[in-house]
Amino acid sequence: QVALSRTQVCGILREELFQGDAFHQSDTHIFIIMGASGDLAKKKIYPTIWWLFRDGLLPENTFIVGYARSRLTVADIRKQSEPFFKATPEEKLKLEDFFARNSYVAGQYDDAASYQRLNSHMNALHLGSQANRLFYLALPPTVYEAVTKNIHESCMSQIGWNRIIVEKPFGRDLQSSDRLSNHISSLFREDQIYRIDHYLGKEMVQNLMVLRFANRIFGPIWNRDNIACVILTFKEPFGTEGRGGYFDEFGIIRDVMQNHLLQMLCLVAMEKPASTNSDDVRDEKVKVLKCISEVQANNVVLGQYVGNPDGEGEATKGYLDDPTVPRGSTTATFAAVVLYVENERWDGVPFILRCGKALNERKAEVRLQFHDVAGDIFHQQCKRNELVIRVQPNEAVYTKMMTKKPGMFFNPEESELDLTYGNRYKNVKLPDAYERLILDVFCGSQMHFVRSDELREAWRIFTPLLHQIELEKPKPIPYIYGSRGPTEADELMKRVGFQYEGTYKWVNPHKL
């Protein structure tokens, strides 16, 4: 086992960053958080920038500027975001240094004079007029057009580079997404736009490419001749908990499936790229999406959770019991969808996408189930092999396979070949997804960000279904809070070829 401390991990990262040409360590950078008073800024962006600063992973002359409508001070920003920093008493001095680099400007999102004030403020910072500028839009999409237009007109660096990070949702359907994309691309070049999907920053999602293309053993079996089906799962054990009003506007397909799960599907299904260059990788992902037809209604199961009468606390409440959810809402909190990649490698292999709230566990994984062994000599005792990439929690890679049961006879039983990170790298604290992705933006690497043509294809696949749901308002199937979801989803999976045995229990190697 390799035991690495946080300091050692960050030392390795620093070495990698400083050796590259793309990370300008000594240049002045300004990180501007648009929507600095909001939840995302408070819980994710400010803490992430602090962790990067604490670990010495930001360029040395980096300033952080918050911008929002609320009249706040840096002290206010500190008060609301610091509880999420997880700072230790030993880091007190470092924390003071961090907040000394912070400033805040209040202004409207659609007022040109406010942006001119913001620009004057940035120019007044040390070497601010020639600094590289990175704008993070932690804002609702309704203000994107006004904000990007004003940034472009008043706040661009004339000497350094300018980059803009856009948070999902990128529209509600193909038409609104196209409108937003066309607007942003009329102001910024594609190499300046970073559409963030934080799932692409997760260690195991990034590991998929290495697993596939750096190991000879997987190449020959990664196709329709050997793989019976692919299941991509995202499960949350909690409901909307008072935030249903926002969720109800989008629903589970827009929230998770059309982005996170579809991105994971691309990494499983794509061909080997010409290189690890950002556009070479994204070219292959677009090719996969172009091979997927629009979702067919007979390959869809929609569910909505109801309270568990035997549960406790939140578990007793259904989705419609959330006071922020519109009365009688038919918005799905669970969806199972089957897609097919219609190309030579994957023809006929079902890709089953499942996601839901208020389920029995927290889990995100990719599961490849292989065909049955031909010419069975073990009297149907063999179960199908599976390769599982567990994204969260407890990152893991393992192969479910058959071995001989101890004893006199040739009785096979299920076991696993474990390729888990935790076994080799004991207690290594890896940077989280937002840390990686923000560092990628500083480096100018777009590999783990969504390109406009990729986004367009993703919406093309799901828009007809979303429009049909909005028009017909089908009643989702009720499922109990804390269950596996509607049984109809299991029946759909069985119908397209997935075999669920229920006889195997994964042993978490992190707890051995």
Rank of each mutant, 00 (worst) to 15 (best):
E271S: 07
L466I: 12
V337Q: 11
L465Q: 07
R345E: 11
Q446M: 10
T333H: 01
I438R: 04
P326S: 07
V256N: 05
T324P: 07
Q446I: 11
L262D: 01
L320Y: 07
E491R: 13
S415C: 10
K285G: 01
V268G: 06
L262C: 09
D490N: 14
L439I: 09
R436F: 03
S483V: 06
K287C: 09
Q369A: 06
R460S: 08
R436S: 11
R460G: 08
Y305M: 03
A358W: 02
K383T: 15
P476H: 00
G303S: 00
G444A: 11
E491H: 14
F409N: 14
L492F: 11
F370I: 07
E344Q: 12
V441Y: 00
E457S: 09
D279R: 14
K473H: 14
E413I: 11
E294C: 13
E454V: 07
A297D: 15
I480C: 12
K429P: 14
Q304M: 06
Y504A: 04
N423T: 15
E342S: 14
R484D: 01
N411R: 08
K357T: 00
V295L: 13
D280R: 10
D255C: 03
R460M: 06
R367T: 02
Q380K: 13
V441Q: 00
F442I: 13
Q296S: 09
E284N: 08
Y479E: 03
T330F: 12
I292W: 00
K400Y: 05
R367G: 02
V288W: 01
K357D: 03
D490Q: 08
C443F: 10
E284V: 10
G328F: 13
A374G: 10
E314K: 09
C266N: 09
I352V: 11
Y434F: 05
L466W: 00
E312Y: 13
P476M: 08
R390K: 11
V428I: 10
N360Q: 06
E470Y: 09
E470H: 13
C266K: 03
Y398K: 01
F498K: 09
L359K: 00
D310Y: 15
V256F: 07
R254N: 05
K400A: 03
P323A: 15
C291W: 08
C443Y: 13
E413D: 15
Q446T: 09
N394I: 06
D280H: 12
R390V: 09
V295Y: 09
N427G: 14
N277G: 14
N385H: 03
N308V: 08
K505L: 13
Y481D: 02
L302C: 08
F409C: 15
G313V: 09
A458S: 11
G311M: 13
Y479V: 05
P323V: 14
R354N: 01
R495A: 13
D372Q: 11
T503D: 15
M401L: 09
P431L: 06
A374V: 11
M402K: 06
K429R: 11
R495S: 13
L417G: 04
L289G: 03
G422S: 15
V337E: 05
V268N: 05
G444L: 01
D321A: 11
L353P: 03
Q392E: 03
F498W: 14
